[in-house]
């Protein structure tokens, strides 16, 4: 899977590359809009992370150009500006998703995976991990062919964990993945614990291994050896 990161801040693109490479993605970095355009003319990317504010123009113009050329690359708009305008503009211009700075790398990774799934397989993608099979389109989860009945939150959690497998995920990142930016309305993130406990219980009942590990003081980890 090829990812193009269009970002003029090297410290940030370096972090993204480090994280995504560990997930097995091949990453390229473009610092300017013209650089990005040149790269997209030569290669096809599965997903493009597009910063809106670039030194030589707006990422939205680049997005417009790519969509006009009927390019099918998945595009996630990343912006430091007020979410409202750019989100609407980005999605209207055909971006697949929108992420506001600052973001969690696990969140970015989950979004990238989701965009690639939707783009590559027109939404009907089976996510498979050992005995766990997930149909992301119909939101169906099977373990050893036993259907596991999950709530929406539990399903979202499972996908999030699988995409970020073998990663330590902090409670804050998980809470924000589940509740968006309103997560800070909670005094604490104890509610995640309840969801994770239920998810663990349901997976275990269906015969899955115990992948979900609590990492003391840090958060959780979906451990696949």
């Amino acid at each position: 899977m090829n990812i193009l990161i269009v970002e003029d801040e090297p410290a940030l693109s370096k972090s993204i590359v480090t994280y995504l490479k560990q997930e097995g993605y091949a990453c390229a970095v473009a610092v300017t809009a013209s650089d990005a355009l040149a790269k997209t003319e030569v290669f096809d990317y599965d997903c493009i992370l597009l910063d809106i504010m670039l030194p030589d123009g707006s990422g939205l113009d680049l997005l417009r150009t790519l969509r006009r050329d009927k390019r099918m690359d998945g595009i996630i708009v990343v912006s430091a500006r007020d979410a409202l305008d750019d989100k609407i503009a980005g999605l209207q211009l055909g971006a697949d998703d929108y992420l506001a700075k600052p973001f969690y790398l696990p969140e970015l990774s989950a979004r990238v995976a989701s965009v690639i799934r939707r783009r590559k397989f027109e939404g009907s993608n089976e996510l498979e991990l050992n005995e766990i099979k997930i149909d992301t389109a119909s939101r169906m989860v099977r373990v050893h062919n036993n259907v596991v009945d999950l709530t929406k939150k539990e399903f979202d959690l499972l996908i999030y964990f699988i995409v970020n497998k073998n990663r330590v995920l902090s409670k804050t990142a998980i809470a924000e993945h589940l509740s968006g930016s309103d997560a800070d309305l909670f005094e604490n993130f104890d509610f995640i614990y309840a969801h994770i406990k239920n998810l663990k219980k349901k997976l275990a009942a269906a015969g899955a291994d115990d992948y979900l590990k609590s990492v003391y003081g840090m958060g959780y980890k979906f451990e696949v050896l």
């Binding site: 430091a80 600052p102 969690y104 790398l105 902090s170 003081g217």
Partner: peptide, 25 residues
């Protein structure tokens, strides 16, 4: 927002290294 994004991404990476509970806190 951009420096904040950088700090956040570095923290996310830091969490993936061998950190103990205190550091994670």
């Amino acid at each position: 927002q951009t420096p904040l994004a950088i700090i956040q991404s570095k923290l996310d990476l830091l969490l993936q290294t061998r950190v103990n509970g205190e550091q994670a806190g």
